[in-house]
């Protein structure tokens, strides 16, 4: 029994040593060019990444990713991932980058190497329309029961203000909480709030009021990836020649774009 365990342990260690050795051989840029495709990890997140009627991925992030891949001379492949597993997807090399309106938090920056910020965002408070008038500033929020996505920027803000809150699995779940009345208010991304609530959506009776903070979006890569510099250069170029702004206008996010 002991011998078997010893054998298994040493086998695993040898395997991982071999793995460490071989991983250093190729940079990300070389790997992407060799396989001829940039694999972009996304979620369905309008207006940054979403599918058009033909099932093709479009959106501000998706279009920029296509342009970036083109500049590298490779094809682009969009892969829907589980947002909770984004770091594992990157490190497991099943995707090359996370490009999906990702807020640059300290956690994100410590787990990945990130591009320069390219888009502003804010965390906003979502409440029922009927009571929206009562909550116009931060001071009025005390006493409300909040629902926030666990680990999100919104949760951080709510905790900083020492408000009562329930962490849920996704921003959409936070909205569901408010709609079903199990929470009084939710804190979600401004861009998402713009797309998901109000007239013509399933959340027609919700609205957003107070902005809690401003934050910025970036693109995440594996630690030590040389694609970061390439993307920063691509951002600078496309900002200069106006193509980034043109793309932003197409999806209505031109107000939020950060100068490169």
């Amino acid at each position: 029994m002991k011998k078997i365990i010893t054998f298994l342990m040493s086998a695993i260690m040898v395997l991982s040593l071999v793995a460490c050795g071989s991983a250093k051989e190729q940079t990300d840029m070389e790997a992407v060019k060799e396989k001829g495709v940039l694999v972009v990890g996304i979620t369905d997140f309008a207006p940054m990444d979403y599918e058009d009627d033909n099932g093709e991925w479009i959106g501000f992030d998706a279009d920029m990713a296509k342009a970036f891949a083109k500049s590298l001379g490779v094809k682009v492949e969009f892969v829907e991932i589980d947002w909770d597993n984004k770091v594992m997807e990157l490190d497991g090399k099943t995707i090359d980058c996370v490009w999906n309106g990702m807020t640059l938090t300290d956690e994100v920056k410590s787990a990945m190497d990130c591009s320069n910020a390219y888009c502003n965002n804010a965390q906003v408070v979502v409440v029922n329309k009927d009571v929206a008038d009562k909550y116009k500033d931060v001071d009025s929020l005390s006493g409300l029961k909040f629902a926030v996505e666990a680990g999100s920027a919104g949760e951080k803000e709510v905790n900083a203000l020492e408000l009562e809150c329930t962490p849920v699995k996704a921003q959409s779940d936070a909205l569901l909480e408010v709609k079903s009345g199990t929470s009084d208010a939710a804190v979600i991304d401004l861009l998402m709030a713009g797309a998901m609530i109000g007239e013509g959506t399933g959340y027609a009776d919700l609205t957003y009021t107070v902005s809690l903070n401003s934050e910025e979006y970036g693109v995440g890569f594996r630690k030590g990836s040389d694609l970061v510099d390439a993307l920063n250069k691509f951002f600078a170029d496309s900002y200069k020649d106006g193509s980034m702004m043109k793309c932003a206008k197409q999806y209505g996010v031109q107000e939020s774009i950060i100068e490169q």
Binding site: A19, A23, D91, G92, T94, I95
Partner: peptide, 15 residues
């Protein structure tokens, strides 16, 4: 799904 890429450095399944 993730073990081959994370530990062996070789994602065998494809993305």
């Amino acid at each position: 799904y993730y073990f081959p890429g994370l530990v062996l450095g070789k994602p065998i399944w494809g993305s």
